[in-house]
């Protein structure tokens, strides 16, 4: 959608080039964010931060690649992080499956050219990954109680420890998952893989 001249401008940090990209992408990026985030201010923040991230990482911009999909990935990851944070605040560390918002695939096709995993799936994946990275015993207890839905008493008997100890493990696990999820800043990693894979 943008010519080489604009992309070179982006790479050189020229505000005019950023303005050009901004005016044509803003309405759609906003439309995409609004699928997941209701607060207008938060949407504005995400888009603004997205453009600033692009600016900060401008050395990695390759004029041969699509700026649209690059910005889309940056903005998508910011949405993902906001949602994670919100989910964690709401549900005490459990991330339930929620139905993916169908319209997001429209934006995926438009910006990246194909349908990829939904934001919801990405969120669950990163949550599962955080669970997998827990220490063995903690992971076992957390999975039994929180994912398989077993009673704390049962698990305590199975392991031969007190219910209090189980509770302690679970709250520790929750904290670790929370830290992992919030610390995880996928935008950079994805940005790099993106630049190499296209």
């Amino acid at each position: 959608m943008f010519d080489i001249q604009v992309k070179k401008g982006l790479k050189n940090g020229d505000p005019g080039a950023y303005k050009e990209v901004f005016r044509f992408l803003y309405p759609r990026l906003k439309g995409y964010c609004k699928l997941f985030i209701t607060d207008e201010h938060e949407v504005e923040d995400i888009i603004q931060e997205g453009f600033l991230t692009l600016w900060e990482k401008r050395a990695g911009i390759q004029p041969a690649n699509s700026v649209e999909s690059l910005l889309f990935v940056i903005v998508r990851n910011r949405c993902l992080n906001r949602i994670k944070k919100k989910k964690l605040e709401e549900s005490n560390g459990d991330l339930e499956k929620s139905l993916p918002n169908e319209i997001q695939f429209l934006y995926q096709i438009d910006f990246t050219g194909n349908e990829d995993r939904s934001l919801e799936e990405l969120m669950i994946e990163s949550f599962q990954q955080a669970v997998e990275e827990l220490p063995e015993k903690m992971k076992f207890i957390y999975k039994k109680c929180k994912i398989e839905g077993k009673k704390q008493k049962e698990v305590a008997e199975e392991l031969g420890i007190t219910v209090k100890a189980i509770e302690k493990h679970i709250s520790k696990a929750k904290n670790q998952i929370r830290d992992k999820l919030l610390l995880q800043y996928p935008s950079l990693v994805l940005l790099i893989t993106f630049l190499f894979s296209h």
């Binding site: 940090g13 505000p15 950023y18 303005k19 005016r23 803003y26 504005e44 600033l52 600016w55």
Partner: peptide, 13 residues
């Protein structure tokens, strides 16, 4: 989008 752009530009500068 004007307001939004203005703050991006200011931050870039």
């Amino acid at each position: 989008a004007v307001k939004s752009w203005n703050s991006i530009e200011a931050a870039i500068v």
